[in-house]
Amino acid sequence: MEKTSKLIAAPVAWRAVAYVLMIAFVVLTIFPLFWLGYSSLKPHAEIIQHPMALPRSPSFDNYVNAWTEGKLDLAMMNSFIYTTVATVSTLFLALAASFGVTKFPYKSRKFFIGAFSLGLMITMHAVIVPLFLVEVKLHLVNTRIGVIIPFIAFNLPMSILIGVSYVRGIPDAIIESAEIDGAKYRWIFWRIIFPLCTPVVATIVILAFLQHWNEFLFVFVFTTKAAMKSLPVAITQFAGRLNFEYGLQYASLVIGILPMIIFYIIFHAQLIKGFGEGSLKE
């Protein structure tokens, strides 16, 4: 905060354009959210008869019903377990790999970067059946670990790429001086690289959390017991095949979005915690 206030302010024209762009985004975003929010307080029949009107007598019935009928409490807990474990694992695995492939002078690092990039190109639908067969063989179906491992694997390529682009920019001199001091690489990673990476850690965590929180396919296919369902899977049960129950659906969608929004508000401060605040002052 303080470091930027020292900066010379941008010219008025830029500020004007900035306001226009930002406000355009905000209007486009607030409107749907607002509509979703107040619609979730209306009963099904009222949503159909007056889709755009504000609720006549706002009620949280939809939330209560969605929460109990959809067993969303259980689903919420499962989602937290899957998302947290997978996100933390992804972060450490990705950052370690990023450090490995950027700061070590081995030829194979090009191979690894290439291989990981390939992962970005695979659609989940293309692997779901063979992966399911493997999980059946390994008795991983209906286990939490059987869900979490594919979560991690599918997030690694993106996280590593983001990690690589950032870690690469850390001056080699910092690492070299530590090497000369005889520091172990594990120490360098934890004590030097990791603290320097706060913004990219935040980026990876936010994007991984987002992807894991919204992930549907793996939980859906690899689990059969209600006790294992995540929020998106539970919520999909309200999206009808031939008819719809809008009230319940909207309420459960709000329940699904809220944790993500809260998470972002908490974590976004880390995004802009500058490089400059660490040990690195050029």
């Binding site: 779901i128 059946v129 399911f132 067969l133 209600a226 999909t236 009808g240 095949r241």
Partner: peptide, 21 residues
């Protein structure tokens, strides 16, 4: 019970059928 609606029902069932169980 496990309840699934829509096209997703078939997708998952095809995977289950492929596993033989």
């Amino acid at each position: 019970f496990e309840y699934v609606s829509g096209e997703a029902f078939h997708q998952k069932f095809q995977a289950m059928a492929a596993s033989g169980d």
